[in-house]
Simulated assay, not measured.
Amino acid sequence: MIIPTKRSNTTNLFQHLKQRHKKLHDQCMSTKSIETNKCTHQSQPEQTEQVSIVQAFASAVPYEKGSKRHKEITDAITYHICKDMMPTHIVSKDGFRRLIQTLDKRYQLPSRTHFTRFAIPEMYEKCKAGVEHELKQVKYFATTTDMWSSRTMEPYMSLTVHYVNDNFEMKSRCLQTAFFPEDHTGENISEGLKEALASWGLCEEQQVSITTDNGTNIVKAVPLNNWTRLQCFGHRLHLAIGLSKGEGQLKVLYPKHLNTTYMIKWNIQRANSTYGKTQNRLSNTS
């Protein structure tokens, strides 16, 4: 390695090495050449390619709606809405729109209507097709179901399927949470469950059992379909804890009272809706 010093030179030294020590001279010259090339390379400024006019304007032009990049971002936003159960009006929020513009200025966020009418239904159909493909490989399965109401007192019936795949992995798929406006009688629930299985191409004979709570209507519905019913362990455990604390009377009476109140409200709401439709139909005919 060559070490520079002030007020001195290495000319005489190199001449001596050249004449007396040829091998050392060659090594020194080789090292000196490498050091010189390294310093020269570091001192040269990096050359950057000049952006063409076409490229400069292209960076400011929005993506075409049918382009691959536009579809990728739209699909990612749709997945975010579905996976995280976000309201669709999030795409209209100023903060969310600013976030998207910061991430990619060329992307123009579609309207809320686009997501509700096209993007989300399209993703649902793709997801449903994938689940249906999985279920075709299943030989036997079990299901769980429950009846519940939304915050706006609208009734729904959920259905989840459980099975073990070829790799002996336990899988669960929530098939549907369907609007169920009919009276929650055993006959209506049994028919609704049969229709739900049929809509997913599931054969009743392959169903090992169905797990439910202890509601009178669902207890009546399952035998009507000649299915094997299992009681929900979590529900029974909850009741057992309540009984052990001396809250049995409250735990039993309160749900019945709540259910009666709910059914009255829902029947009134349904009657008003039916009355309104009939009134509109009569007005149009007159």
Rank of each mutant, 00 (worst) to 15 (best):
S59W: 13
H16A: 07
I100A: 05
S150I: 10
V51C: 14
E169A: 10
E35Y: 05
L109C: 04
T5M: 02
A60I: 10
G201E: 03
A56Q: 14
S33Q: 11
S111D: 07
C28Y: 02
M29C: 09
M170R: 14
A142Y: 01
K245N: 08
H162Y: 12
Q176I: 03
L135M: 08
R7N: 11
Q101C: 09
D213K: 12
D166H: 03
D84S: 01
M1I: 11
S8N: 14
I218F: 07
E125C: 03
R97Q: 02
G192V: 08
Q50M: 09
Q55D: 15
S67P: 06
C232F: 07
K18N: 02
R117N: 15
T36K: 15
E247Q: 03
G130S: 14
E64G: 02
I3M: 13
T40D: 14
E46A: 07
R97S: 01
I2W: 15
P87T: 05
A58C: 13
I189E: 00
K128L: 05
I264G: 05
T160S: 09
H21G: 07
A271I: 05
N272Y: 09
Q176G: 05
Q19T: 06
T113L: 09
Q269P: 02
G192F: 10
C28I: 04
S59V: 13
S52H: 08
G186D: 11
N9S: 10
V61W: 10
Q55G: 09
Q269K: 13
E35K: 00
E182C: 01
I268H: 13
W266M: 00
E187P: 11
V161I: 15
V222S: 09
G201F: 10
R151G: 15
N284T: 15
A198C: 01
E187R: 15
G95V: 02
Q19M: 01
N259C: 05
C28L: 06
G130C: 09
R98L: 14
S92E: 08
T285F: 07
E154F: 03
K265Y: 13
Q207A: 04
V208R: 14
